[in-house]
């Protein structure tokens, strides 16, 4: 199965859907590995929201594309270079600080994204956004609370959060390298960037995390299907069954 996507809006939405799916898969890794039971349950909730969001977005994409493929086809039958998620969300759970820093930076971003989708001319997308924003709000409050706890908790938690933020900030630059599709389907790209920066900078200051200057990165853009090496491993695990048993129905 070779999946092709023709429509511009579908291509654009695939970025948003893939970002939700890949982060959902990463967060699911926390299941039975959380620092305590309540947090294990919270991470499962966040992961479930992300999978649900991805599924709804793939359905919208499938509809735009004339139902040539199902949501599961998009998930299980595309290769590394055919995935268009932010590199930020495929980064591993090195420790809980990485999980939190990654989630927080993502949540602030998608809060802006789905706020703008609320006035999309695509009614399904606008409708979905209202529901999704409630979920993002919960996840955002959760990740922000943990930013504070880790940043201001103990020396060790501060050091770990600082390391995580310093690593992950390298994957932020590409988020705001807007292309034509972004400019067509967002009402205001610049606002996404300025709101993200003011919110994240304020939180990093409040939780005592420093922002070192990061030189401009030459890691090529996620919009062209460029990734870190992590993506291949994530996909090979996630796609194993449908790939190994192509005739099976699940």
């Amino acid at each position: 199965m070779k999946i092709t996507i023709e429509n511009k809006e579908a291509k654009f939405l695939l970025r948003i859907a893939d970002t939700a799916l890949i982060l959902g898969q990463r967060v699911a890794e926390l299941c039975s590995n959380g620092p305590f039971l309540e947090e294990d349950i919270a991470q499962s909730n966040i992961s479930l929201d992300l999978f649900g969001r991805a599924e709804e977005l793939y359905k919208i994409i499938a509809k735009i594309e004339g139902d040539k493929y199902t949501a599961d086809d998009y998930v299980f039958h595309r290769n590394e270079r055919e995935y268009f998620n932010l590199k930020l969300v495929e980064q591993p759970n090195e420790d809980f600080a990485w999980t939190i820093a990654r989630q927080y930076m993502h949540d602030v971003y998608v809060q802006e994204v789905f706020s703008q989708f609320q006035s999309s001319s695509n009614e399904e997308l606008a409708g979905l956004s209202a529901k999704v924003l409630k979920e993002i709000r919960y996840s955002y409050l959760h990740s922000k609370d943990w930013m504070m706890r880790l940043g201001l908790g103990t020396e060790e938690s501060h050091r770990r959060l600082q390391d995580a933020v310093s690593h992950l900030r390298k994957f932020v630059e590409e988020i705001f390298n807007w292309d034509e599709l972004d400019r067509e389907y967002y009402q205001d790209c610049d606002k996404i960037k300025s709101n993200w920066e003011s919110e994240v900078n304020a939180t990093l200051d409040a939780c005592n995390i420093t922002r070192e200057d990061i030189p401009s990165q030459s890691m090529r853009d996620y919009r062209d299907g460029f990734h870190s090496e992590h993506i291949g491993h994530l996909l090979s695990i996630m796609q194993y069954l449908p790939r190994a048993y192509p005739d099976a129905k699940w």
Partner: peptide
């Protein structure tokens, strides 16, 4: 098997169950 669940539905149902 959570990370290898073979459909979006199976993935969500299994995760909700383990939760």
């Amino acid at each position: 098997w959570l990370l290898r669940a073979p459909s979006l539905r199976a993935k969500q149902v299994l995760l909700a169950k383990i939760q």
